[in-house]
Simulated scan of single mutants.
Amino acid sequence: MKDLQEILAIARTVGWGAAKILHSYYHQTAADLNLGIEYKQNEPVTIADIAVSQYILEQLQSALGQEDFIYISEETYQSQLNIDLSSTSKWVWIIDPLDGTRDFIEKTGDYAVHIALVKENRTILAVVAIPEAKKLYYATKDGGTFVETHNDSVPVQLSFTHKNQRLEDLIIVVSRSHRNQRLDYLLQNLPCRHQKAVGSVGCKIATILEQQADLYISLSGKSAPKDWDIAAPELILTEAGGKFTHFDGTILEYNTGDINQWGSLLASNGHYHEKLCEEAKKILAQLET
């Protein structure tokens, strides 16, 4: 099997290729795109989702083969349910060809490509491409996070330029569409008073990396984010010095046999992370009493 840096180079190339395809679909007329929208479990799926999923799988499998890897894409997962996807003897690619499909359709620009390589339930390689920003973030475990444009690649390291910043001044990046009563109650009662609406988990985490926001919270309700929503964004955040955990501090795991990331999750630039988790737990406990 190729070494991790060779695999990363392949994944970065595939990420840029996928971003180019999505960009071309995005800038077609809305009428053309709407012809290809279907709904699965109340979530939209476009012709762009399908085309990019096929592209990523074909490119990775052509370069890396199927002997050493399992490939899980959001758009092919249902057809793989009879496969033992939780085998820890395999390296598993977890792919979201279009994270933020609603934002893609609504033309907010907040959509991304997620490509993650998971070993023993943890991400060891990640690519998050954001077509409209013309940026690609990538990371390897213990190798740091980098942001790449078509011209260069530079390391990303979160720094706290406002060490005396108050909790009240922190900015929470929030979803436009994935909301529920518990989350709204939590957001209303946290001391953080500023919110920034961004679609796609990948775009939210990029907003934290770009130091335009400080934290992101996910509370599962009737549904939960899936492995492909979180696996790649988590690594690019944590390798840059941020944190992404459950409220109780436990780490996130993938390819466990359940694709749902249930529970209460908090991603942050690392500043006040534990304090924010404790505050959030107290507020939710008040709601449930």
Rank of each mutant, 00 (worst) to 15 (best):
V45W: 07
I47Y: 11
Q41I: 14
Q41H: 14
I21E: 06
N42A: 11
K40H: 09
A18W: 10
A18L: 07
S24D: 12
Q66T: 15
A11P: 11
A31H: 05
Y71W: 03
D68G: 03
A48Y: 02
D32E: 09
Q61N: 09
K40F: 04
V14I: 07
G15S: 06
I50Q: 12
I10N: 00
I10H: 00
E67C: 01
D32I: 08
G65P: 01
A48V: 03
A48P: 13
N34C: 11
N42L: 15
V52I: 12
P44M: 10
D68Y: 09
I21Y: 04
A63Q: 07
L22S: 02
Y39I: 02
A19L: 08
E43S: 07
A31N: 04
P44S: 05
N34S: 10
G17E: 05
G65T: 06
T29I: 12
E67P: 07
I37T: 00
I47S: 14
N42M: 14
A30Q: 12
N42V: 09
Y55N: 05
W16Q: 01
K20S: 11
Q54C: 04
A31L: 10
I72H: 10
S24A: 12
I10C: 00
E58K: 15
G17S: 03
G36N: 14
W16S: 00
A18H: 05
G15H: 11
A63F: 06
E43N: 08
A31P: 03
Q66F: 07
A51K: 15
V14Y: 11
Y39L: 13
R12M: 14
G65E: 03
T13H: 13
A63M: 09
A18F: 11
L22Y: 01
K40Y: 06
F69Y: 05
I21P: 09
A11H: 07
S53E: 15
A11M: 15
L33I: 13
Q54E: 12
G36L: 06
K20I: 09
I70S: 12
Y26R: 02
D68M: 04
Q66M: 10
S62N: 11
T46E: 07
E67S: 06
G36T: 08
G36S: 12
S62C: 11
R12F: 14
L33H: 02
Q54I: 02
Q61I: 08
V14A: 04
Q66D: 10
T13Y: 13
Y25P: 15
S62K: 12
V52C: 03
S24V: 12
T29H: 15
T46N: 07
V52N: 01
E58V: 14
A18D: 10
L35P: 04
D49W: 01
A30F: 14
T29K: 14
N42P: 05
I21D: 05
